[in-house]
Design a protein around this nucleic acid. Structure first.
Lengths: 113, 113
DNA sequence: TTGACATGCATCGTTTGTCGATGTATCGTT
DNA sequence: AACGATACATCGACAAACGATGCATGTCAA
């Protein structure tokens, strides 16, 4: 099978998942905190809507890239904490490598004479 | 109006158009040549299918980012040559800036402790 | 001469993932 | 009492790329 790397197959479909998984390598976190972290770390360039976030989190669970359990936040609120799995770390590495390859390819075109 | 930059709105929807417009700054070119240029310049990392390419070219025409006229290739084949417009150059600059901002935001997260 | 492959155009239907809108509930502050 | 922040989640619409498919001509080797 050919190693196809069309734009859409590599650039978008896993990008949010990748960012979430990366966030989870800092330790377990709940959805709302993940969204805030992504926004703050990106200096508010990234806007993570709930309707993008929660479906993405569901995909992580379905693929066993993360587990979830209900708990309490620092402030005593009920929240669902997500934890990255070993498979999730592998996925993160693969996704990250693919993303970098794609970005490199785009950069090669954009910076070409 | 808030300067929203959700992932999908900036990362994918215009990426192929951006790459095509960039290619056209080298001079007028026909679809097939554009696709080959993108693949070669990216060292075959990018695969540009016709079913992605031609709709993208149509969008360039509709938005007046490019014009097209029928002509002949070096080898005497009938082909449609696309030429970037002034509006297209503006679009390319804007798209490129937005893309860079998005990539920077993602990099900030991926390279964060 | 015939068959494969490259060149060159284009459309159709499907899939995928984001997005805006919407809904629930609790807590702290004014 | 009202409001905003925290925290979860779903629904339908939409946009864009993708795979499959189709047509036509040119080149080159078997």
């Amino acid at each position: 099978m050919r190693n196809k790397t069309s734009i859409a197959s590599e650039l978008l479909p896993g990008t949010l998942e990748m960012l979430i998984l990366k966030t989870l390598t800092r330790g377990p976190a709940h959805g709302y905190a993940i969204a805030r972290h992504l926004e703050q770390t990106s200096s508010d360039v990234l806007q993570v809507g709930e309707s993008s976030l929660y479906p993405a989190l569901q995909r992580l669970l379905v693929n066993d890239w993360a587990t979830a359990e209900w708990g309490e936040t620092d402030t005593g609120r009920r929240a669902r904490f997500y934890r990255i799995t070993a498979a999730g770390r592998k996925r993160l590495a693969a996704e990250s490598a693919g993303f970098d390859r794609m970005i490199g390819a785009i950069a090669a075109i954009m910076h070409a004479g």
